[in-house]
Design a protein around this nucleic acid. Structure first.
Lengths: 244, 244
DNA sequence: ACAAAAGTGTTGAGAGTACACCCATGC
DNA sequence: GCATGGGTGTACTCTCAACACTTTTGT
């Protein structure tokens, strides 16, 4: 969309500094309006044990003692939404470079019984092997739950999870996000298993391979891997040119 | 997604009332965290004069005097995000039942030079004939702009508009949103013109008709309309069963 | 030799695309 | 009768889905 004039971060920052100290600033004080708390919540998916799993934390704080919820927390004053989500995820898991994408904001006035909290939901994909989960802050235990055997969730987190799952499934076939859930080198059967876990249905082996290979998203390596008394499988890696 | 347990609004409200007055409430006061201002912004599209047009308001308030921006405003204390967007749109245009959908939240800490404002962007589709735009509140003039001849926009509204346009174009072929931009009865040529305006390219008449008719989204009426010295056109109406 | 997963092609159906002429009307 | 937009069908290509047997290894 080249016909839209997008201001650079430098231009924005310059105007901020120039205008913030203007004598007119006080007259138009927007902070007089109602200000809600703003949080970020994360739907963190991983695929293990033939199940698509989602990360939940057990809340210890009032009024949720013992209820499970999505990891998340409040946005800080000088922090973007994505940055807040990244920080919360790292605090909870110790992992820093993950695939993160915003879903949308949830702002029902009664979604949080404590006070008005608007939350911006994100979803993340993560290799479970990289994880070393730790409890932190107000949160108690952190663990993976199969999406087919979920506990009752706090707030409107069931709605958020539902949306995240729908989004993940609709993106998986048309984009390359699934490769965020795979190690550097993998077999075609491993990718297929992953797709089957995410979509919740079996796929035809020949059609799947044809599609993956003709899409050019994987590159054949000259390595094979042997996992049992049968023919060894060829290893592939993701084609970095297909990042889009 | 039947395996997710979604709480009903009644259940949520009940727990709110039960828990809000608990003696523990004060100990876990979440309002001690930083609270930004939260706004909703609207990308309102219409199609007229062979152009896709977007509604912009001229700001009179500091520090934007004379700059154009998307219509929008702050979310109130007991108001959902969609409700806030609807209210702002009605204040600005007098029109109440429009198609509205959330895009996503924009929260760059420096997107607003006055203070930290997180905005939840929405897009709307509206029949321009129904409009009676009025200036209101802090806003000056309101008018339609062709998406191909836009002024420089305030804030990050160029980014938001860009996203809305991309979303509209990708939804138009797979969903029924386009019919929100048409009167009750219309000719097939009128729909085609609308699609061409939105997508910014010409379409093949025979293929377009084949697709629209076989999708079952329109119902033939027994009326025709005569607009010039040529064969009269058949009028169709939207099939309400295809709402999805 | 056999168990177990890896690997490999063809066919039919449906969707999308390209393309050109007759029809009904007002003037 | 002619100008103007309304209305119609066919052929090709490409994508998707269904479907079964051979290969390579360890034991």
């Amino acid at each position: 969309m080249t016909y839209l004039n997008v201001r650079t971060p430098e231009q924005i920052r310059a105007s901020v500094e120039a205008e913030k100290r203007s004598p007119e600033a006080r007259r138009y004080d927007v902070t007089r309006y109602f200000r809600p708390s703003v949080a970020v919540d994360l739907v963190v998916f991983t695929a293990t044990k033939n199940q698509l799993q989602v990360m939940l934390v057990e809340r210890k704080d009032w009024p949720f003692k013992g209820r499970w919820a999505l990891p998340g927390g409040f946005v800080r004053e000088h922090e973007g939404l994505m940055a807040a989500a990244k920080r919360e995820l790292e605090e909870e898991t110790g992992v820093s470079d993950v695939y993160l994408e915003q879903l949308r904001a949830f702002g029902d006035p009664e979604r949080d019984p404590r006070t008005r909290v608007i939350t911006v939901a994100h979803y993340a994909l993560i290799l479970s092997e990289r994880l070393r989960m730790k409890a932190s802050g107000d949160a108690g235990q952190v663990r993976w739950w199969s999406i087919y055997e979920l506990p009752e969730l706090a707030f409107d987190h069931d709605l958020i999870l539902d949306l995240a799952l729908t989004r993940l499934r609709s993106q998986i076939m048309s984009s390359r996000v699934a490769f965020r859930l795979l190690p550097e080198k993998f077999t075609l059967t491993e990718i297929q298993k992953l797709y089957e876990i995410i979509l919740g249905k079996t796929l035809d082996k020949r059609n799947f391979r044809k599609k993956i290979l003709s899409a050019g998203v994987v590159i054949e390596t000259d390595e094979t891997i042997l996992k049992g008394r049968h023919r060894p499988a060829r290893l592939f890696r993701f084609n970095p040119e297909m990042e889009q």
